[in-house]
Write a protein that binds this DNA or RNA. Structure first.
Lengths: 188, 188
DNA sequence: CCATTTGTTTACTGATTTGTCAACTTATAA
DNA sequence: TTATAAGTTGACAAATCAGTAAACAAATGG
């Protein structure tokens, strides 16, 4: 099998799942939107769940690549990079493709903690936390773990609020709160 | 129509939707789990969407009643009440019924901002924000609106993180962050 | 007693769900 | 040329989706 067609399927399926949701997207809709026949899909992926897992893997790779690189581009000093997390977040919110966090939505639809989709989504969040925790460790704060977890709470809250109330001021509020938390963590 | 049967249907449907999700729950499953016939359901609610909206109304009423009363029980002084938000949150996370926020899940499944389900979920969050903002206004801080919005970011982030990573330490992290934000808002 | 309301059961649409099947085409490569 | 593999179409399962129709039971209320 050439990897081309398979990857093309995953790329297109990502857009549809991201736009319409997982349960609301049937395989027939994917046939119509991707132009790839159903038989071919089931040759690449045994089940719909397998396809969703591949989609989430691609989303994780794309998003973490973009987000981490962007944070490191925006600022140099570790403490500035902790703030840059929220600048990158704002860019994401304001981009026309923004439709919330795919992993929060996945967990909302597959709530069973033992579901592979749930597990993979939680892993994505854990890896993002580790990225931020790494920066916090370089920033010479007393408790990098706690600070990183708190900043991630602001980030997740900002995502959910941006989806529900619109993006106005959300990223700015989160960034202002982050600045206070970072300053407090550095003062000790 | 007696209100009894209708309310019983909404109460039972709430449990099923909360446990299994909206799209993943068919009307036949509701027939099996509630014992109420499908014809009766469609006499009370024209569509599944109408039933979901009634379920969300009940959830909003129950949750806001419990949450706001609990916050006011736990503490007296406005600043303490702002912190009590996160004590109530922790109680919720640790309760055996906790399965995340029904409104975040609803918005995840009905993403169109013009969808009545989406709108009603956003309204719930806005009313909770107003409750916290009222307390912040009593607390004599410089910018009650900003502080309230920031505390709500922590709250939403804590909910999402509790679902994804388990509740350990999440509420405590959020509360510690809230304490810092409240102190900073009062110092000015 | 009679009419209305409220609820029931059973069966039924017509569309859609995930997933499979056989037959066919096309490209690659030995 | 011939074999292999990838991809195609279109029909097909068996179950489930939201929603409806018809006939009936029982309680309520005038």
């Amino acid at each position: 099998m050439r990897p081309n067609k398979r990857d093309e399927l995953v790329r297109n399926a990502l857009d549809v799942f991201y736009r319409d949701g997982f349960h609301a997207t049937g395989m027939d809709k994917l046939v119509a939107e991707t132009g790839i026949s159903k038989t071919s899909m089931y040759k690449h992926f045994r089940t719909k769940e397998d396809l969703i897992l591949a989609v989430l893997r691609l989303r994780d790779e794309r998003f973490r690549n973009w987000f981490c690189r962007r944070v490191e581009e925006i600022a140099e000093a570790p403490k500035d990079r902790l703030l840059a997390v929220f600048d990158a977040l704002e860019e994401w919110f304001k981009s026309p493709e923004f439709k919330g966090c795919m992993f929060i939505k996945a967990v909302s639809e597959f709530q069973n903690p033992e579901d592979p989709i749930h597990i993979q989504s939680a892993t994505h969040k854990r890896m993002l936390l580790e990225f931020v925790q790494g920066i916090a460790a370089q920033a010479r704060v007393t408790d990098p773990g706690t600070l990183a977890r708190q900043l991630m709470l602001l980030k997740e809250g900002a995502i959910v609020t941006a989806v529900m109330q619109g993006e106005a001021k959300v990223a700015a509020d989160a960034k202002a709160a982050a600045r206070i938390l970072i300053a407090a963590a550095a003062r000790c």
